[in-house]
Amino acid sequence: MKRTGIGEFEELVLLTICVLENDAYALDIKDEVERRTERRMNISAIHTTLYRMEDKGLLVSKLGEASQVRGGKRKRLFSVTSFGLKSLAEVQETRSRLWSDIPANVLKSLHT
């Protein structure tokens, strides 16, 4: 298997950006992840991950319009690149292949 180099948290963030239909901004991502995982997130952790994934080429970013709300500070909006999507798909495929290969008797305990 080719290494995609996506960690669990990175995968989570990437998926969240997809859910938010791209052009997502760090705080929205944070809220969404918190809502879905019911865990408190650090904004700094989100930032670090976002920038790291940008450096890896999984994301692209652009600066949004300046608005009055944040004292004139612009937002950075992140979108998943096709490489990011492909990496996500690969991860999912690997996982589903593994799931489908799990013998039924092992899975039994999950349903009971």
């Binding site: 901004y25 809220d31 904004i43 944040r70 500070k73 937002k75 950075r76």
Partner: peptide
């Protein structure tokens, strides 16, 4: 190039 961090953190603070 990462000036947005300041704004983000401020927003986060208020929330």
């Amino acid at each position: 190039s990462m000036e947005e961090l300041e704004g983000d953190l401020l927003d986060d603070f208020h929330r």
